[in-house]
């Protein structure tokens, strides 16, 4: 049962629970009209202390398409956080108004603090460079839709693997599926954090390699997961400038890839995927954004415990 639960870390859901969310998402995609009123009378609060387009709007679109309503704030400046209110106090207040909350915060662990003090389900919409579990649900649903299953593939994850919270969440979640090989492509300074390497990849005996050149492995990949080097995660502007153009996916690199490889990206992109790739049938990142809304619809339904009438 997922009713009343929080989603803070991708590992909060078992593989079976994830599958139940994906199956519901499949049904919603198949017959959206049948779900148009299931959340009538329910309120989703979006507490976004950090700018976001996709995540906040996809949460809001998800709730509206389920017949529910939304309220919230989209920056710390427009909330009482600007007056110094704690996450705990904000959460306890929101819980008196809404039925479910999606929270994004620049500080790592803030949604966990909210969940520990909340009687309503809290969904982590991204916390600093830490975790982004609903992006992971999006990524998994996309891979599952494109490949038909979540096992037996080689995934290349490229870019900022140090601060990229989507990467950490994705590796954690994929570690529980069979026969997945990870190729981690990043500059030395942006390699995955030790805890992901040691406690997820090594501890579970997963096959992985860490390399610097994307060209060297393009022909091995079934999925290429590109990420942005995120300016907002750097304390030092010079480091950002030095590393921001480390990887750019263009037609030349795509010509080395398998014909059925899929390119994913959590978006927004800056310049790491050339726009000339957008019309390549292997580019799946805008489809991915759409799956993100459907998987959030399924998640909201599960956490609220509502079902199709």
């Amino acid at each position: 049962m997922l009713k009343g639960r929080h989603l803070i870390d991708p590992m909060d859901l078992t593989v079976e629970e994830l599958e139940s969310v994906f199956k519901l998402a499949d049904e919603i995609i198949e017959n959206p009209a049948e779900y148009a009123d299931v959340c009538k009378g329910k309120l989703l609060s979006t507490c976004f202390y950090e700018p976001s387009t996709r995540t906040r709007l996809s949460f809001e679109a998800a709730m509206l398409r389920l017949g529910g309503q939304v309220l919230g704030f989209s920056s710390a400046e427009s909330s009482s956080a600007a007056k110094g209110e704690s996450v705990r106090d904000t959460m306890m207040t929101i819980a008196s108004y809404a039925d479910i909350c999606a929270m994004r915060h620049p500080k790592e662990g803030a949604p966990k603090v909210a969940a520990l003090n909340s009687p309503i389900p809290v969904i982590n919409g991204g916390d600093g460079g830490h975790q982004h579990p609903t992006q992971t649900l999006t990524d998994l649903l996309t891979i599952r839709a494109l490949r038909g299953k979540l096992t037996d593939f080689t995934i290349g994850i490229c870019g900022d693997l140090k601060f990229g919270r989507t990467v950490h969440s994705l590796i954690k979640a994929l570690s529980r599926y069979d026969n997945i090989k990870f190729i981690l492509i990043s500059p030395e300074e942006l390699k995955i954090p030790d805890y992901i390497r040691e406690e997820i990849l090594m501890k579970n005996g997963l096959e992985f390699q860490e390399i610097e050149r994307l060209e060297d492995v393009m022909n091995e990949l079934d999925i290429l997961y590109m990420t942005r080097v995120q300016k907002e995660r750097f304390f030092n502007e010079a480091d950002y400038v030095r590393l921001k153009d480390s990887y750019i996916l263009d037609k030349d690199k795509m010509s080395m890839a398998k014909q059925d490889m899929a390119v994913l990206h959590p978006l927004p992109r800056v310049n790491e995927i050339s726009v000339e790739i957008d019309n390549d049938p292997r580019a799946a990142y805008f489809k991915q954004a759409k799956y993100g809304m459907y998987v959030r619809m399924a998640l909201i339904m599960k956490l609220l415990g509502v079902e199709k009438c």
């Binding site: 704690s86 996450v87 705990r88 915060h105 500080k107 790592e108 662990g109 803030a110 603090v113 600093g128």
Partner: peptide, 8 residues
């Protein structure tokens, strides 16, 4: 320094 406990 990015942890929520650093500011609360």
């Amino acid at each position: 320094p990015r942890c929520i406990t650093s500011i609360e």
